[in-house]
Design a protein around this nucleic acid. Structure first.
Lengths: 214, 214
DNA sequence: ACCTGAACACCGTTCAAGT
DNA sequence: ACCTGAACACCGTTCAAGT
């Protein structure tokens, strides 16, 4: 987070601008991200050093900075990747198995990350995103897409009379998302990251929350 | 987070052991914590430097380390203080106004911290607690006390037939806590920290979740 | 074009020396 | 007993020099 004299300028040329071969660039970014994920998982975002990431990726510090502008830039790329993966699976489950199993699948996808030890990393990403809008903005775009899928699936479930039709689908999607994130973070804090137990907690909540009103 | 040769020993004498006047010690800790809160609020836990905290507290680095073992130790003390404050208010509200207003009061107490810009700090505390059990352990003790209050208030509300009697009070308290934390963090991520809107979202959720079953 | 790694400007923490 | 602040062992990032 320390920086040289150039920081704070608005139109710095990004390193990516001077890259020629996009295939090599993609390969290097992949290589650096995999190394960073391994290091962050072992030691956390702030504890892992760039030297460690360079060693793990088998690349020099100077080379790394051709492909990522900063340590925070690496975490942003990892977070983006983390998010965009499970949307298709959710959509298929929502159509084939109903809304509750689909929501539980999305929740399990998230809880699994805590089970493999990424809990602190996820909290770090929240902290960085809350502090720095440059990190939050791309994550919000991905988030918005997932929320839209939730909303559509909830509306379809209402049309099928699977859940309460008086519920506002947008509000419900937001609250379901918040509950998944809250449950995951909280259980990690309490040192119980068993994903089955977390899904059971979420399912009990979702069934109550979405059920038909008297 | 870097350290000298002595780290890793199990029975290092804590700085506090060599302190004589407990009143001076308490004053110094207060002075350092207030300075740290101001610095963390401005720049975040990892961005704020010990030099800044020392300057804000008007104390030298060496003096600071007589009263706190590390930067992480300061955050732990702040987090403990953050938590233990609103339990009494919750209990009184639960008896006088019913369970829903009491839960909303507890939620508002939490959401207010995001509104004054402590969101990233709270996420930092989550991350540090998930990563380091030495930080998590004292926080879990405080957390457990608050959860117990929730459970007792929920049971009393069930006895009054205010909410669904088939609900397991322990499970419900855990899920309500997770929802409060999730809503707070998520709204900060989405850049909407208006506490009224957050409380409204929580209230809509809590009323549905706790209501009598058909 | 792409890479290396020493160098730079920091950081958290310690400890000899003061009062 | 309590404090100071230079010194220590790092850190993230840059940039002259190589291929």
């Amino acid at each position: 987070m320390q920086r040289g004299p150039a920081s704070g300028l608005f139109f710095e040329a990004l390193p990516v601008a001077r890259l020629a071969d996009p295939l090599l660039a993609e390969r290097r970014r992949r290589q650096i991200m995999d190394a960073a994920i391994a290091c962050f998982r072992r030691r956390g975002f702030h504890q892992a050093t760039m030297q460690e990431i360079c060693a793990e990726a088998d690349i020099s510090a100077g080379a790394l900075y051709r492909y990522f502008a900063s340590k925070a830039d690496i975490i942003a790329a990892i977070a983006e990747e983390h998010r965009g993966e499970s949307d298709d699976a959710f959509l298929r489950a929502a159509e084939k198995e109903g809304i509750i199993p689909a929501l539980c699948l999305a929740a399990r996808n998230f809880f699994d990350k805590f089970a493999i030890g990424d809990g602190a990393l996820i909290a770090d990403i929240f902290a960085e995103a809350i502090r720095d809008d440059a990190i939050a903005a791309p994550l919000r775009a991905i988030d918005a897409r997932s929320v839209t899928l939730f909303v559509q699936a909830l509306r379809a479930a209402q049309a099928r009379r699977e859940i309460d039709v008086t519920l506002n689908a947008e509000d419900a999607a937001e609250t379901l998302f918040a509950a998944i994130e809250g449950i995951g973070l909280r259980r990690a804090f309490l040192r119980d990251t068993n994903p089955d137990a977390a899904v059971a907690q979420f399912r009990a909540f979702a069934e109550r929350y979405l059920s038909h009103r008297p």
